[in-house]
Design a protein around this nucleic acid. Structure first.
Lengths: 224, 224
DNA sequence: CATTGCAGATTGTCGGACAATCGACAAAGT
DNA sequence: ACTTTGTCGATTGTCCGACAATCTGCAATG
């Protein structure tokens, strides 16, 4: 009634969406192993939903690339291969470079503050110590996700989210140590370029920035 | 039994897939208008399938961006707005530039011949006369689709297909005349760069090439 | 030892049922 | 006249149960 916003928020989520979100989190948090079988009827009992609803949720996750469906055999959590990582890496390059360009092109004051805030948090965290690649990838993805968000392109954002989620699955099983501070520092020029509205430079830096992650891809190749 | 390949091909497509393909073609060929309502029960009768199966097919098309679903209201063919075209345009840039880079990076003899073959057909068709944007977009998309295919990145290919399909919907209602020959000629340097394995140049040319299509986007803006 | 055939498990598809929600219009109240 | 409320039809959301189609593994067969 007053000027304040009403904080009341009605959650309107279909059961299918809720089931999909639930399973998505389980997969992303590593509760399921890569390639693990998911049986419709079993999940239906666990979630106390009908098989149809579970099936639709799995369908959604399949479209997001988190699970795969083999006809008459079943669903299973995606099993990332070497070539999958290669594909995801190049998709990231394609999407993030354009996102950085767009973000720089139309950056606002609000956007700048959000970027700098997250960057500051990133740098602060970097001072602590070496951490697992899981955490480094999380905070790194947060920053890149923000850049994608600032691109203002919802379709790009949606696709990027799916790509990023698939990458997160891999980082769940990679527990090597990386230097978080070095990672944080390498993002500073990119953030600056975006805030300055220098789109060409932002694009180039974004590409260069991801290229450093190629090390991880190569490391994967050695292991297999 | 002999050395020849057996041409026997068992079609193994679920009813859902068949329904999705059928509806997809209807939408892409302009049999439905943008924003038209699609009723599950009506389609189920038409296709002689159960509502569940139709629903799953519509779900697939929704993930592809061809239809949208509003809870408790229904499904409808996507209604492309100005901002949708803007999003799609930049997605094309992001995907195609990387695809061109990748294609040039790993082009094979077979790839070269396929490219040159299609390019020759393109140039030949260009000599005929002015044609509608529908046809020009079709043959143009064919070429770009081939480049994306030659990138060897299946995920990129999949996403590009969805983006291209959404763009095709718009070209169904844009019947202005364009110069096909000019369009064909503008692609020659790109094809050459890819065949020469000059990835950086191919990337730059791909971006420049799509930029010419910005005219269409601007034209759309004027109309609305 | 290779092939065949069978049984169990799981998915693919269907039809029906009922609740939940939406849009629109009529009815009621001020 | 205007707003609010109630109602109704249409459509989707969800569930259930049933059966066919298919895959896997293993036993039976030759």
């Amino acid at each position: 009634m007053q000027g304040d916003k009403q904080t009341m928020k009605i959650v309107k989520q279909s059961l299918e969406e809720q089931a999909a979100s639930y399973l998505r989190e389980l997969i992303l948090n590593g509760n399921y192993q890569m390639g693990q079988k998911l049986v419709e009827s079993t999940l239906a009992k666990q979630l106390e939903l009908s098989r149809s609803t579970v099936r639709m949720a799995l369908n959604t996750l399949a479209h997001e690339g988190l699970v795969v469906q083999k006809p008459y055999i079943g669903w299973q959590v995606i099993n990332l291969t070497e070539s999958d990582l290669w594909e995801l890496y190049h998709l990231r390059v394609a999407l993030e470079t354009r996102a950085a360009w767009l973000a720089a092109e139309q950056i606002t004051e609000q956007g700048k503050s959000r970027l700098n805030e997250l960057m500051a948090y990133y740098l602060e965290a970097g001072k602590t110590a070496k951490v697992s690649s899981y955490q480094i990838s999380k905070i790194d993805l947060d920053l890149h996700t923000l850049i994608v968000e600032l691109s203002g392109n919802q379709r790009l954002q949606q696709i990027y989210r799916n790509v990023a989620n698939q990458i997160r699955i891999y980082f769940n099983i990679d527990h090597a140590d990386y230097d978080l501070e070095e990672s944080a520092l390498s993002h500073v020029p990119l953030v600056q370029a975006i805030c300055c509205g220098n789109s060409e430079k932002a694009q180039a830096l974004a590409e260069e920035n991801i290229t450093t992650y190629r090390k991880i891809e190569e490391k994967f190749r050695e292991q297999h």
